[in-house]
Nucleic acid binder design. Structure first.
Length: 799
DNA sequence: TGGCCTCGAGTTCA
DNA sequence: CTCGAGGCCA
């Protein structure tokens, strides 16, 4: 090829440039590829070879120059000859109506025509063409001065390096938005993830970050797209009469204009477009944050003119934002009821989907690491499920210098105790227990909460003060509230003293004319007094035993019937309760083994708190067979015990249980008898060792004793409700009663309630507006009852 | 042992 | 609503 004559080479170079430009336009603007990728590559390679042989033929508009030159050190400034405008915003239909009214007044037209288009969420830029050649591209910047990003823009195939047409204008500035299409964004991110590289936070940041790369090669690798929507300086190019025609003309020059651009008439037309685009927002390939309305006729635009920097002839009608950027002012650590430390991002207040968000949980240490959130970072915030604020990701490009990874504090921020994090556990905990004021406070709050003891009139701040202000004057020294039991010893004078201390701290001198807050105090005391006869389930939940929430509390209450029996229960017995395994059982046993907790319970009892008692559940007691006790003992010992426990098959346990029914009886068996029951030499020997240990003897005797008590106290006749064994799911809203009420009546008949539909569900009660659970029931062929059928069922059994 | 499923615990804001 | 982890069944 190097042997070709320069003129022949020049002609070939021109032809190659033309073909590549045509294909770029087809592929990137029209989205209809004309030739295969390999064919395209072949053209490009040939062009590069020719240019290498004839350097004098290399021109600025050559596609080989899209990625050219070396990395820049900084961007130079570009002053926009014609400033790049910002648009006024409309956030409501009223704002849009006001805009239309002003246009009507200024133009005298009843139904002015508008050009409407999606407001792309990207980066506004201006492209300058001189005599048809792309010479410079700049960001919007502050509108009057931007940054020169020509080298990066050259790498965008949707930006023509030379505009089509035989008589190019002397000067043409085309303005528009650089965006990263959502599909390309996702593809880029999954590829980056596979390579273990940083992912982009969102398409908008992807576009902005990509254009601000100093090395154009990086930009070239990013899937960016340019959409034109306006002009800047124009010389030697006739302007059409309408904006909509202008968009057509830009298309003809080789630019892409967003395909959703339309014309609309009057306010109704605008709002219809707004609604239509809003409905299809998630299916568009580009993120948008609203739509733009422009007066279509350019002469009317000129008539309307500008207010400061925004045109009066155009407005952006914004969708309510669902994701916003803000700054993490600090990462603080909260201490929960169980001592769990939770990092929380304190955010610069920002509107997200209609509310001001200032906090967002970061869950735990791992989560902070994974997202690498740091104080001072700019982050993207979203409302998960449109409710709970959540930090989506960090905008790395905006990270201030000198920031460092967030560290979990080694000491509890509330009490200074050591922070411990167990191996392979995600949560870190304050080891201070009830020494920690935060834990004390949260424990009291939990105790009073609606689903626990349901004590009204105790807000978070009041509890805070009860724990920190010395307002109890019973003893020699004024004291703070220490335990939940002390709530029941509060008197009117204590509460008034608390209020006085609060006022004193706030610097308020009590106004003698004003009534003392007796009403509040009386109501609170009444509420406390009214909580003295909780269900056992509520009291258990209120105590705040680790791992014991509402569900577990209910199982425990149901199985044992009284607090004493639960407190006395060995891990082995606890594990036989449904849904209680080793971990939860140990947690419960540890709670009742702690003297401090027993004191609190004793104090509660002394104060008159008396949970309702019931007999042990017959079906639970029925499950306490000796073979099951042996299984349970084996599980607990082999997982944690210092003693070894023989690996014994279930069949051996069953054979053993057929002969003996207690640990005492088992201990009385000699080796030969054990062998006869299927225990092998080592297993039997290990069992003997265990039974000879004094503390084990005591423990096993305790289990025997409790099981004896439970058997004696359990109702002899198993009261089987007519619906026992049935699992019921309630969904939708009932008209005559609440779901809770319906649930209670069903449970009274022996039914078991569940939250989710599975093939084990006996039937589903579906009220009005039942959702996915009803669908699931239909899918699984589970019987569905409506409210009338439910009432009939209840009626037939309750009599 | 792995994969459900459910539960526990913590959290936001009007 | 989320994540994490415990329990249980295959």
């Amino acid at each position: 090829m190097t042997t070709e004559l320069p003129t022949v080479a020049a002609a070939r170079v021109d032809e190659l440039k033309r073909q590549i430009a045509v294909n770029d336009h087809r592929y990137y603007v029209l989205d209809e590829p004309g030739i295969s990728d390999s064919e395209y590559d072949r053209l490009m390679r040939e062009l590069r070879e020719l240019e290498a042989a004839h350097p004098e033929l290399v021109t600025a508009d050559s596609p080989s120059q899209r990625v050219g030159g070396s990395a820049l050190r900084t961007f130079s400034e570009v002053v926009h000859q014609l400033p790049m405008l910002s648009l006024g915003n409309a956030f409501s239909e009223q704002d849009a109506a006001d805009f239309v009214r002003k246009v009507q007044e200024a133009t005298g037209e009843a139904e002015p025509q508008f050009s409407v288009e999606p407001k792309l969420d990207g980066l506004a830029i201006s492209l300058r063409y001189e005599h048809g050649l792309f010479v410079r591209g700049a960001t919007r910047g502050d509108g009057s001065t931007g940054e020169d990003v020509t080298a990066n823009l050259r790498t965008l195939r949707s930006i023509p390096l030379r505009i089509a047409g035989d008589t190019p204008p002397a000067v043409l500035e085309v303005r528009g938005e650089v965006v990263m299409p959502r599909r390309a964004f996702e593809a880029f991110n999954s590829a980056a993830r596979e390579r273990g590289e940083r992912t982009l936070a969102n398409p908008r940041n992807g576009a902005a970050g990509s254009l601000r790369q100093l090395d154009p090669a990086v930009t070239a690798a990013r899937p960016l797209m340019f959409y034109a929507y306006a002009l800047g300086v124009v010389e030697g190019w006739p302007l059409p009469a309408r904006h909509s025609e202008l968009l057509q003309n830009l298309r003809a020059l080789g630019f892409s204009v967003h395909p959703e651009a339309r014309s609309a008439r009057g306010l109704t037309g605008l709002l219809e477009y707004f609604a239509a685009i809003g409905a299809r927002r998630s299916t568009l390939d580009v993120d948008i944050d609203g739509v733009v309305y422009k007066v279509d006729r350019l002469d009317q635009q000129a008539e309307l003119g500008f207010v400061s920097r925004a045109p009066r002839w155009a407005i952006a009608h914004k969708f309510p934002a669902q994701e916003e950027q803000t700054v993490v002012e600090a990462i603080e650590v909260q201490v929960g009821r169980t001592g769990a430390l939770t990092p929380v991002a304190r955010l610069r207040p920002v509107h997200v989907a209609g509310v001001v968000v200032t906090n967002a949980t970061l869950h735990n240490e791992n989560e902070v690491r994974r997202k690498d959130v740091r104080a001072g970072d700019t982050v993207i915030v979203r409302r998960a499920g449109d409710v709970i604020p959540e930090v989506v990701s960090v905008v790395l490009d905006a990270r201030p210098d000198g920031s460092s990874e967030w560290q979990l504090p080694p000491l509890c921020p509330e009490c200074g105790s050591h922070v411990v994090r167990e191996a392979d556990q995600a949560v870190a905990r304050c080891s201070g227990g009830l020494i920690c004021p935060a834990q004390r406070k949260e424990a009291i709050r939990h105790f009073c909460s609606r689903r626990a003891m349901d004590i009204e009139g105790l807000g978070s701040e009041t509890i805070d003060d009860m724990v920190s202000l010395a307002f109890l004057r019973g003893g020699a020294q004024p004291r703070q509230l220490g335990t939940v039991a002390e709530l029941y010893t509060l008197g009117l004078d204590d509460l008034l003293e608390l209020k006085r201390l609060q006022d004193e701290r706030a610097g308020i001198t009590p106004d003698p004319k004003k009534k003392t807050p007796t009403k509040w105090a009386e109501n609170l005391l009444a509420s406390i007094a009214g909580s003295k006869t909780p269900s056992l389930q509520r009291l258990l939940f209120a105590l705040g035993i680790l791992q014991t929430g509402e569900g577990t509390a209910k199982e425990l209450a149901l199985a044992f019937g009284s607090l004493d029996e639960i407190a006395a229960a060995d891990v082995v017995v606890l594990m036989m309760v449904p849904n209680i395994g080793l971990t939860v059982a140990e947690s419960i046993a540890a709670f009742f083994a702690e003297p401090h907790n027993c004191e609190v319970i004793a104090a509660l009892t002394a104060a008159g708190v008396q949970p309702q008692r019931a007999a042990p559940a017959a079906d639970f007691v029925a499950r306490l067979e000796f073979s099951a006790q042996l299984e349970s003992l084996k599980t607990s010992i082999s997982a944690r015990g210092s003693v070894g426990f023989p690996s014994v098959a279930s069949t051996v346990f069953q054979a053993t249980a057929a002969h003996v029914a207690s640990f005492a009886a088992l201990a009385a068996l000699d080796l030969a008898e054990l062998r006869a029951l299927g225990w092998n030499e080592t297993a039997a020997a290990q069992l003997r060792v265990l039974f000879e240990d004094a503390s084990w003897q005591a423990r096993l005797a305790g289990i025997d004793a409790q099981i004896g008590r439970l058997r004696r106290d359990a109702p002899q006749v198993v009261s089987k409700g007519p619906l026992s064994g049935q699992t019921v799911v309630l969904t939708g809203s009932l008209s005559g009663m609440t779901r809770d009420q319906a649930g209670a009546r069903l449970e009274a008949l022996g039914a078991k309630l569940s939250g989710s539909v599975s093939k084990k569900t006996s039937f589903v009660v579906a009220g009005a507006e039942a959702g996915s659970k009803l669908d699931k029931a239909r899918e699984l062929g589970v019987q569905v009852l409506d409210e009338a059928a439910l009432l009939a069922l209840l009626g037939s059994h309750e009599a």
